[in-house]
């Protein structure tokens, strides 16, 4: 059992929770993830990246988006309540060294796992440029935290509601085309974004890593559900990854595999909202109404 000590709603769909997990807080390194289960009888095992950890407090911070039933259940938990099971830290830590100039590209919720990686890269003496991308202003997360780390921070939104109106690949290409291109690029975000980051850096020959979040059950090297073709070889994200050379990943194959349970996930998700079971919808509505009543705008 892992007690939630604090919780914040970063946007309609994005939550940050700080959870008691002293062992994980002590051992985790940048790039690793956990598997959480809100209900060990019937619940799903959900892999989530670690956004931060405090070994002294014995807590880890998770930032997640409510994309399906299980993440909804997780978001419904309040401080004082517990997650029934949390396993980790899983996966290989990011290989950190002094590369020179490192560019960290975080898209959407992918900014969360990028945070400890950017931190570690900075500590290792790299010049760190961070690109944060989001669909819209509301979905920009960890801007202040990233600004504190970055030598340069670039924020882009798809709709131009905040920062520059662009996809992350635009500033990424500009950086790669500069007189002194980056020595390494790390991209974390939606698979499509990572795929296009790989395509953006490929012509410049800039080494690019991507952190994959595939379908996974045990996360310990047993089920093989997380397999992905990298450089023509089958690799397991949980024990060989989660980070791989983005230029070698078979992105199209991975995108297809991610959709394996799409129809079932969509049906469950729809049932949750339509059935009025989703407390988060109600909470969000209340918050919106309250904000409107106060004359504020979000």
């Amino acid at each position: 059992m892992n007690k939630i000590v604090s919780k914040a709603r970063l946007s309609d769909e994005v939550f940050r929770i700080e959870v008691e997990a002293p062992n994980i807080a002590r051992e985790r390194k940048a790039g690793q993830f956990v598997i959480v289960q809100t209900d060990t009888e019937w619940g799903e095992r959900v892999p989530l990246t670690i956004a931060d950890a405090d070994p002294h407090r014995g807590t880890v911070t998770l930032i997640f988006q409510t994309v399906g039933v299980s993440t909804h259940r997780l978001a419904e938990l309040e401080p004082g309540q517990s997650i029934e099971a949390m396993l980790g830290p899983l996966g290989n830590p990011t290989h950190i060294e002094r590369f020179g100039h490192a560019v960290c590209v975080g898209g959407g919720i992918g900014v969360a796992p990028m945070h400890p990686i950017a931190q570690a890269l900075k500590q290792a003496g790299n010049k760190v440029t961070i690109i944060i991308g989001a669909r819209t202003k509301d979905l920009v997360i960890l801007e202040d935290e990233m600004r504190a780390i970055a030598d340069e921070l670039i924020v882009v939104t798809d709709d131009g509601s905040y920062g520059r109106k662009a996809l992350v690949t635009e500033p990424l290409k500009e950086l790669c085309g500069a007189e002194t291109p980056p020595d390494i690029v790390v991209a974390i975000g939606p698979p499509v974004m990572m795929k296009f980051c790989a395509e953006a850096t490929r012509p410049f020959g800039v080494r690019t890593l991507a952190s994959l979040n595939t379908i996974m059950i045990d996360g310990t090297g047993m089920c093989g559900g997380c397999r992905v073709s990298v450089g023509g070889q089958t690799k397991f994200v949980c024990v060989d990854g989660p980070e791989f050379d983005a230029h070698q990943v078979d992105w199209d194959g991975m995108l297809l595999r991610l959709r394996a349970y799409k129809s079932q996930e969509d049906a469950a998700h729809k049932a949750l909202h339509d059935g009025g079971q989703c407390r988060l919808d109600a909470m969000a509505d209340d918050a919106r109404k309250k904000a409107e009543a106060e004359g504020g705008s979000r």
Binding site: I217, G221, C223, G225, G253, L256, R257, A260
Partner: peptide, 24 residues
């Protein structure tokens, strides 16, 4: 540990499972 696969083309298609995954 890690499930073995046959090493034939198409094994990463959607609908191919290791017995470990299916049974788990």
């Amino acid at each position: 540990g890690l499930p073995k696969f046959m090493g034939i083309p198409g094994e990463n298609l959607v609908g191919v499972f290791s017995a470990n995954e299916y049974l788990t």
